[in-house]
């Protein structure tokens, strides 16, 4: 029983970290209508941008802001130059182009930083215990940051002008355009914010372990699975999906062994696509 509770807690922590890039991924899908797989490269870029900022003396929050800005800017640039011109021909060409630009980004990071592993220079502390359940104060801190980011995103979607216009465009682009919402602007905003979130996600995941050029590629499947599970295009769905995937991945360690962890993501996608293609919460953007 204890071990199950512990796995649940571990799953919630990794789910919270996964949720940030998953929201970014799904928000971009909602507005731009193609799965942007360059999130693998952008997450890596964000992790390294945050790493440089942190090493330069910025605190975690400041470093996250740097990760957000750089990942957002590069993501926006890629969308404008490489992906969006292809969307007119359908989602598939754009998706394939995004796989390519993810690879390019990964290798640019490799060129700049090398293949070495790097770790954020944070002290490693023993876990705290309540009964038999243990948790690390740092992980809780990272989780709290992730939750705060999610709250901020939802607040922005609900209350700000740009958030509302993003939701409107996602729901019905033509109607939104008739109402005077400029689709170009909304699309650019979605790219920037979505990729910024992905960059922060890369950094949050790297904070506790270590980063290398493959950081983003390792989490790509989990991000995609979380978004599909919750319903592609739905931000609350992505959060729900991320928590479920996080918990399922940890529970899989107990049930079938850690070597099969990657199968969890594929399995979740398979089940959802065959039983409920819309995903758990459907496609509504909010």
């Amino acid at each position: 029983m204890t071990i199950l509770l512990q796995a649940l807690l571990n799953g919630l922590v990794s789910g919270a970290l996964l949720a940030v890039p998953a929201i970014g991924f799904t928000a971009m899908f909602a507005v731009l209508r193609f799965p942007n797989f360059s999130v693998s490269g952008v997450a890596t870029l964000g992790a390294f941008a945050g790493y440089v900022a942190y090493a330069a003396g910025l605190q975690i929050i400041g470093s996250l802001a740097v990760a957000f800005a750089i990942a957002g800017a590069v993501g926006l640039f890629l969308d404008r130059t490489a992906h969006m011109p292809l969307v007119k021909q359908g989602a598939l060409p754009a998706a394939i182009a995004s796989i390519a630009s993810g690879l390019v980004l990964e290798n640019v990071v490799r060129l700049l930083f090398g293949n070495e592993l790097r770790g954020y220079d944070r002290p490693i502390a023993r876990d705290l215990r309540i009964g038999d359940i243990r948790f690390s104060p740092q992980q809780l801190e990272t989780m709290a940051i992730a939750l705060a980011i999610m709250l901020a995103v939802f607040a922005a979607l609900a209350f700000t002008r740009i958030g509302k216009s993003m939701r409107a465009s996602a729901d019905n682009p033509e109607l939104a355009a008739l109402k005077g919402i400029r689709p170009q602007r909304v699309a650019m905003m979605a790219s920037f914010v979505g990729m910024g979130l992905v960059g922060m996600g890369g950094m949050l995941l790297g904070l506790d372990s270590s980063i290398d050029p493959l950081t983003g590629t390792r989490i790509l499947l989990s991000i995609f699975a979380a978004a599909v599970l919750g319903g592609l295009g739905s931000a609350p769905g992505a959060v729900l999906g991320a928590f479920l995937i996080g918990i399922a991945e940890e529970a899989a360690v107990l049930a079938v062994g850690s070597a099969y962890r990657a199968a969890v993501g594929f399995f979740a996608i398979l089940i959802v696509l065959s039983l409920r293609p819309r995903g758990l919460l459907g496609e509504r953007a909010f």
Partner: peptide, 20 residues
């Protein structure tokens, strides 16, 4: 014994399992 996935970013649950 336990065979693990070398691409994970944390092994908390694996370690719990081992320490049991």
């Amino acid at each position: 014994s336990q065979i693990y996935d070398d691409k994970k970013t944390t092994y908390r649950t694996e370690i719990d399992q081992a320490l049991r």
